[in-house]
Amino acid sequence: MRRMGLAGLLILGLLAAPLAVWADEGSCIQCHAPQPGALGEPVALWRGSVHQGNGISCHGCHGGDPTLMSMEAMSPERGFLGAPEDSAVPSFCGRCHVGVEEDYRASAHGLALGEGGPQCVTCHGSHAVRVAGLDLINPQDCSRCHDYGRAGELRTAMEQTETLILALDAELKQLRRIGIAVEDWQGRLFALRNDFHRLFHSVDVDKVRRQTDTFQAKLAGMQDEVAELRAELNQRKWIGAGVVILLLAASGLFALLRQSYGRQENTE
């Protein structure tokens, strides 16, 4: 019994435990997170950002070696880039966002770089970067540099397609939540959204209008495929409802039989 008690203790030890395990986030975060002011703030801002959500940590942008717990982690020999100058921000971000940088540089925004024109961080912020959406185009932010009029037109031109993209994205997330393999669709939608958002960086309303039909046709194709799957899932539910009704009917039938036997037993 004593042995069994020890075994029970061990089993319980295995079955229940506190959640104190955290992934190693690297030396950048370990050193900077506790620091006050500008040295620590970026970590707090980065948490919850789209970059963190996709596994892009400090060294993904700033370089360096997060496996070293010394100042050498931030040496140029370890690929450390530090924070870029304002005019170097587009190249800094463009290492990953290649297409966006290309369209931006060809746009009125990009052409004004270094002469008061905006760069990536002006609109998107730096560390607390969220998934880019149309809410970035708003009177408050755009009016910091120019009238909202043209920007508002651009937003209106993009709104319908953006709404379709968001709706399809939400639908795919729901499907993923029930174990449906949506990676292919999500990959295609991701690429489509990137192309569409890249289009915005040209800040060319006519270009957006010209290409909207192409984007919407591609979206409609994906929506049809998803609708087909939804129909199959609904069919499963109907079959499920039938199975449940049959089982409940069988349960009721057995219960009635039991009642009948019960009456028979009482008369014996």
Partner: peptide
């Protein structure tokens, strides 16, 4: 007599 009761509850759980 009792197996039918088993059957009723089993079917309920399966439902």
């Amino acid at each position: 007599n009792y197996a039918v009761k088993d059957g009723a509850v089993i079917c309920f759980f399966l439902a």
